[in-house]
């Protein structure tokens, strides 16, 4: 019975990775939820927007590295982030002007936008593969760990170690900054409030003199920022592979819907809920329980509730349960 060791193991393999993953999902889901709130549709191209943004960041990182610029112990990608966001914003604005604006002007049924986003998804996916290829790209540099397993053991004298990778620490810090900035913007600035107003009641926003095209423009800018940040953090934490980003669509949608589509707070809660459930249920808890239970009760198996292959199933089951009991998500009623 060693609760401390159990906790450290649990933190090392579940808490920390899930917090990082949850932050990434939350930022991704915020992008989806903003588009849903303002433009009234689920953007299937969001995963590929994240991939595109990350690609832009990677290319810029390589450029910086080739001229010998680095960010000390931090990944160079953080320096490249603004460039990546700018490029992605440009792409999204061009997409909006060439694709979505037409349907807005025609007051097309919302599902038209969904189908258009399928087309955009194909194009962006093709674009990313065309430019950077389909292979895994690692672009994290700088210090690898904030605390390594060994340092931790030496510091605490425990049997179990706890590692915090730089990418995980950065993910959480950046996520906190991004979320705080977004909420400040939405709740305190005139433009942010006008976005919420537009999402709440389009006609009344028009009657108040809010310019819908401007609201949409700002939305795409913010979405570009969120998607690029989410994608880059995910890429730093794991690695960049276009197909993986496409697959992130499901947990991101699940997070946004669980939280209540259109609700930023919900997107964040949903992101963490999905991430923690995925990681906990697919992690073999044998070691943790081994420390907690008396020897006689120690489990023989891995106590892995579900194989990691089923992590999508976990997001999905949570989604289903939430929808069955709260059809509008956890945080319904309060939109963007």
């Amino acid at each position: 019975m060693e609760p401390l060791n159990a906790f450290v193991t649990f933190a090392n393999f579940v808490l920390i990775p899930a917090t990082a993953y949850g932050s990434q999902l939350a930022i991704g889901a915020l992008g989806v939820t903003l588009i849903y709130g303002i433009l009234r549709f689920s953007n299937f191209a969001h995963g590929d927007t994240m991939a595109f943004g990350t690609m832009a960041v990677i290319l810029c990182t390589w450029g910086l590295q080739s001229v010998g610029i680095s960010f000390g112990p931090l990944p160079t990608a953080l320096l490249a982030l603004p460039v990546g966001i700018a490029v992605t914003a440009l792409l999204l604005i061009v997409t909006d002007k060439t694709v979505y604006r037409f349907y807005r002007a025609k007051k097309a049924p919302p599902v038209t936008f969904v189908i258009a986003s399928l087309g955009v998804m194909f194009v962006m996916n093709g674009l990313v593969r065309f430019i950077i290829g389909v292979d895994d790209q690692r672009f994290a540099d700088g210090e690898r760990f904030v605390i390594s397993v060994r340092t931790f053991r030496e510091m605490t004298g425990l049997d179990e170690g706890l590692a915090i990778r730089t990418s995980q620490a950065i993910t959480v810090v950046v996520a906190v900054i991004v979320v705080a900035a977004l909420f400040w913007f939405l709740n305190k600035t005139r433009t942010g409030k006008s976005m919420r107003a537009f999402s709440d009641n389009e006609d009344l926003a028009l009657l108040s003199g809010i310019n819908p095209e401007r609201v949409v423009f700002i939305t795409w800018l913010i979405v570009a920022g969120l998607a690029t940040v989410a994608g880059t953090l995910y890429g730093l934490d794991k690695s960049f592979k276009p197909f993986t980003y496409f697959q992130l669509l499901l947990p991101i949608f699940a997070a946004a819907i669980v939280g209540g589509l259109g609700n930023p707070l919900g997107a964040i809660a949903g992101g963490f809920l999905i991430a923690f459930a995925e990681v906990t249920i697919t992690y073999p808890l044998k070691k943790v329980l081994g420390y907690l239970l008396p020897e006689s009760l120690e489990p023989d198996g891995l106590v892995q509730l579900l194989s990691t292959d089923y992590k999508f199933a976990v997001s999905f089951c949570i989604l289903l349960i939430v929808l069955l009991f709260r059809p509008t998500g956890l945080f319904a009623g309060k939109s963007v």
Binding site: V99, I115, A116, L118, G119, V120, M121, F122, V123, M124, N125, G126, L127, R129, F130, G133, V134
Partner: peptide
């Protein structure tokens, strides 16, 4: 080789 996705997207749009 990756032209096909781009093309499909364009056709759909």
């Amino acid at each position: 080789a990756h032209m096909r996705l781009l093309t499909m997207g364009l056709i759909l749009l």
